[in-house]
Structure formats: C-alpha cells, structure tokens
C-alpha cells in the first residue's frame, strides 16, 4: 500500500519580467508542468543546476510562493495560497531548511527565541512549554541546553545548520524541504549533518524533499530522484533506476561531470597523462 503525503500535478510557475525603456515586458516560466508523488517517510531528491527551477519548486511547496497553475496536495490538504491564503494548519505541515546557515538566522536573535518563534506565531502554547520543547530540540539535533541563550555568531557553520534544522522541526512538520542543506559545509561536518538528518527521519517519520546538485550526497540519502533541466523534469525514478540506467542526455552529462574519487579513475587519468 502506498501512503502518499505529497501529490503534485502539472505545476507551473511563471514570472513576469518587467520591461525597461527599450525592453518589452516578458514572461519567464521557471517550472513547466511538474508532476510527482512522494511517499510518507521517504526522501525525494531534486537535482539540477542553477536556474533549473528546483528552488522555485521548493518555494511553492513551502508556500513562500504561489503556483501559477497546477495543484499541490500535502497530506490531503490542497495548497493554493493565491486563492485561499495560508492557514496555521498548512504551516504546520511543511518547513524548510535553507542552504546558507549564516544568512538564515537573525544575528540579533538568541537561539532560544529562534526556536520558539514558530510556536509563538502558529500555536497558543504557553511560554514554559515552548521553552521545554526548544531545549528538547536542542539536544535532539546534537547541541547543548546551554546554547539556548546564545547568539548565532557564537556558532560554527555546522552548528548553525543544526539550529536551522531544529527550528524547522519545532512545529513537528510532516514534510521537510531541504534546499542544499550541506553544500556550504565542510566534508566532515556534511557527514555529521547527513547522519543527523537520517536519525531524525527514522525517529520522527519525516518526509524529505532534498534539493541538491551533489550527486554523491543524493545517492547516499535519496529513495527517489528527480532531475530537472530548464524547468522540466527530465528524469524521475528510484535511486537505483536513475543512477543505474540514466535515460536522459542531461543526466548522463551530469554523471560524467561529477568528480570521481575512486582509485581506478585516478589510475586511468594518470595513465592518460603519461601517454
């Protein structure tokens, strides 16, 4: 039996381009007719290069931006914020973690406040309970309770990303959108964050939409993979299908371009150099 948490059908997003003195106004379609389903508790990875529409898609899924046409259904709840607006109910379903942990935290806000803010805005939970929950989340993402009263500048990049993850799961969302969550981090910190994400998924039954351009991370984490190119989905399948037998030309280019760190390919390169 399949338990679908996210259902997207024929999704479009068009932006108006303002005309200038000598330039006619135009339209730019960033996402062109995207459809997919995500099962509860699984991870869908969205891969593509800059400008392919993957972040626009993320913005629509997290209700930051409205779709131009098409339907989104999250946990049985139809989402169309242009028509209906956003309810607190909807907000509790989806949360997002952004790429840059330095830019996504307010430098003048203490960590405790960062974590409590979503609850303050969307629930009527009393202050003491909010505080307890924030402390619990801090330990859950591998930080200490004494970090509660500190400011973002006192943390490293990896710790900040942990804070951003803690903030995202404060509302106990069903769906978590991760927009390049590890691409700004060092390799060993990246490994820690990926481990944390796996643990949280097992523990809380979270569903991830994982946006990345790093294929090795995608291969490690994803159940299903979707490759986007100029706003369209060019490849969509399980991880083994996509990595084992890529159908589209662009996917193959992408695989060929990814640096290979295994010993055989180094040998091949060195042999070629000598010749």
């Amino acid at each position: 039996m399949s338990d679908t948490i996210l259902k997207v059908r024929d999704l479009y997003r068009t932006y108006d381009i303002k005309g200038g003195l000598f330039k006619k106004p135009g339209k730019f379609t960033a996402v062109k007719g995207v459809s997919f389903d995500v099962e509860r508790g699984s991870t869908l990875a969205i891969v593509g290069e800059s400008g392919c529409g993957k972040s626009t898609l993320a913005r629509m899924l997290t209700m930051i931006d409205a779709q131009t046409s098409g339907s989104i259904e999250i946990d049985g709840l139809p989402i169309d914020i242009a028509k209906t607006g956003i309810s607190k109910d909807m907000r509790q379903k989806v949360q997002i973690v952004f790429q840059n942990p330095y830019g996504s935290l307010n430098p003048r806000q203490k960590i405790g406040h960062v974590l409590e803010e979503p609850l303050l805005l969307n629930t009527s939970m009393p202050a003491a309970e909010r505080r307890d929950l924030a402390l619990e989340m801090l330990t859950k993402v591998g930080l200490q309770p004494e970090h509660y009263g500190r400011y973002p500048h006192m943390f490293s990049g990896g710790q900040r990303q942990r804070i951003a993850i803690a903030r995202a799961i404060m509302m106990k969302p069903k769906l978590l959108v991760l927009d390049e969550p590890v691409s700004a981090l060092d390799l060993s910190v990246q490994a820690q964050i990926l481990n944390l994400l796996k643990d949280l998924q097992d523990e809380m039954g979270l569903t991830y939409i994982f946006i990345s351009h790093d294929l090795s991370v995608v291969r490690y984490l994803a159940d299903k993979v979707m490759v986007m190119y100029f706003g369209e989905v060019v490849e969509y399948g399980t991880r083994d299908e996509v990595f084992g037998d890529p159908k589209h030309e662009y996917t193959r280019t992408l695989f060929a371009a990814t640096p290979n760190a295994d010993v055989d390919s180094i040998k091949a390169r060195l042999a070629k150099k000598v010749a």
Binding site: V217, R219, A261
Partner: peptide, 20 residues
C-alpha cells in the same frame, strides 16, 4: 582516512563516519 570515508560515495553502512 577520516576525510576519505566521510565522502558519501564511500559510505558502507547506514551511517557516515565523521572525523570525530
């Protein structure tokens, strides 16, 4: 060794080893 095994493509088990 830690750096190399932290590469996701070298993951053997369910977890990635970290430098620590």
């Amino acid at each position: 060794r830690a750096l190399l095994s932290a590469l996701p493509e070298n993951a053997t088990g369910d977890r990635l080893p970290t430098v620590s």
